[in-house]
Each structure stands twice: as C-alpha cells, then as structure tokens.
C-alpha cells in the first residue's frame, strides 16, 4: 500500500513533526521507496515464529524498593528552555 500526502500528514502529526505542505509529496515518495523495499520481508515464512523480545538470553534484573535518587530539582530543570521556579513551563494547555 502506497502512502499518499494525507497519510504522510497524519504520520507527521502522530510524530509531531511539522512538514510543510510542499514537502508532503516528495516525502511520500521517499517513504514509499523505503516501505516498498522492506516489503520483501513478506517472502519469509514466519508461521509460528516467536517475534524476538531480547537478543541475549537474560532474565529481567530488578532493584530493591529503596529511595536512591532525586532531590535535585535544579539538575532536573537546569536545561529547560522555559521554566517557572522549579516547574517546567509549556504553552498553556486547554483541557
């Protein structure tokens, strides 16, 4: 299935990337080129094959329930483009 401009517009919004209207069509062509190429995977018989969840044979490691971090709001917000005290600030959200 080939992507059209509207598909690309939707994907761009899902990904929150502004794509100027003029670039939608060329981008659709590029993406279709890549998708057309990866579609060769349909040749592979994968019936009953488990999708991979981890390349190495490991079990999930875990931590104890102990407080070991935090308490440094300055380090947390220091790099923020906009802040108010120790809060991050963003354009007003209307709910």
């Amino acid at each position: 299935m080939a992507l059209d401009r509207d598909d690309v517009r939707k994907i761009a919004f899902l990904a929150r990337i502004k794509v100027p209207d003029a670039e939608l069509a060329p981008l659709a062509d590029e993406l279709n080129g890549i998708i057309g190429w990866v579609e060769q995977l349909s040749e592979v018989d994968t019936d009953g094959v488990e999708p991979m969840t981890s390349v190495t044979e490991m079990t999930l490691k875990s931590r104890d329930d102990a407080v070991s971090d935090a308490g440094y709001p300055d380090r947390v917000v220091r790099n923020a483009p906009d802040r108010a005290g120790d809060f991050y600030a963003v354009p007003k959200v209307v709910e």
Binding site: F87, Y88, A89, V90, P91, K92, V93, V94
Partner: peptide, 14 residues
C-alpha cells in the same frame, strides 16, 4: 500539569 498559575503557560511537575 497546572493550568491556572499563569495566563499563557502551563506548569509541569514530574
């Protein structure tokens, strides 16, 4: 998110 602290901005506490 706090929406009532500032006229133009919302404040975020994580």
């Amino acid at each position: 998110s706090m929406h009532d602290q500032d006229p133009k901005r919302s404040f975020i506490d994580l």
